[in-house]
Design a binder for these strands. Sequence first.
DNA 1: ATTTTATGTCAGCCTTGTTGACTTTCCAAG
DNA 2: CTTGGAAAGTCAACAAGGCTGACATAAAAT
Lengths: 168, 168
Amino acid sequence: MADNGTSVAGGEALLFLTDEQLRKGIEAMFFAYRGFTADPDRILEKLAYGRAHHRALHFIHRQSGLTVNTLLAVLGVTKQSLNRVLRTLIDDGLVESRIGRRDKRERHLYLTEKGTALERELSEAQRVRMRAAYRTAGPQAVAGFRQVLEAMMDLDMRRQYLMLRDGV
Amino acid sequence: MADNGTSVAGGEALLFLTDEQLRKGIEAMFFAYRGFTADPDRILEKLAYGRAHHRALHFIHRQSGLTVNTLLAVLGVTKQSLNRVLRTLIDDGLVESRIGRRDKRERHLYLTEKGTALERELSEAQRVRMRAAYRTAGPQAVAGFRQVLEAMMDLDMRRQYLMLRDGV
DNA sequence: ATTTTATGTCAGCCTTGTTGACTTTCCAAG
DNA sequence: CTTGGAAAGTCAACAAGGCTGACATAAAAT
């Protein structure tokens, strides 16, 4: 059996999923996620923002003009929790909340210039790391990386993810 | 260019890392991590424990007899923060703290039978999901998954991870 | 004998999650 | 046109789990 836990039988690769193999994957996820958030965290710290602010900025940038309800669904938190974060972002002039034209109950969220700038700084820090990791691991690895991650999501999360991945 | 962002030039595959590609990876990480923690979280909730307890149990199981200091380094939290968690685990009879034989200042941590049982339940829930994801994605994807994750870690985290990965 | 290390603990603070209750505004169905 | 329900905002209270700072004890190391 090869080191990566694969073997070939009858031209078809089979997976021998030992608990050991799985544990390595679990620990890799744990440590990698720390790396994944480390760079933005450092930037946010200086501004007295947290990861929650980053997430909000990310998805507002991603889907400009989305409603509060949509953002709640994507983030998977309560409206009270989001509101605290969103209020500071609006007060600080990073996010603009516009009343819906069709449905005036809705608030549509947009990044201001200032918000766009911070989002860019945060995501660029994150991209630098991802880019380096992708380069190190190579194209095949990258494809596999995404495949496993997508297979690991809950169904409802995958729905959200695919909507974003393939365009809204 | 292929859909996965790769192309072949002169027999060597090159990576075209558009911001779009990177963003998909970033969002995949975000949603996948939620899935990754979802199953243990549900189990922990019933017992009034949190993710912090799970992490402690995991690494004590992983490296039985490790000292408090070692655990602190792996988890990357302060001793006050760990202590709160550790104390409840010890009080509840999931973890045993034995005074070091060589160095009596040290406390070596072990899972009790009860602790082992809970750790198994938690990690099995996590393994079920990982196993399913691995099976769906296939062996090549799994190798790539781990490669990218490892390349994404901070240097000091990778040190910790490799020590655990390759045996202590 | 003194200093350093490992651990534990108290107090207090912050972020970010939660639930519950209540309001305002507004759309939509009866 | 009234009424029910949806979208959003807000107040209060609470908890987990991070953090810092300060201090205590025991034991090792110098």
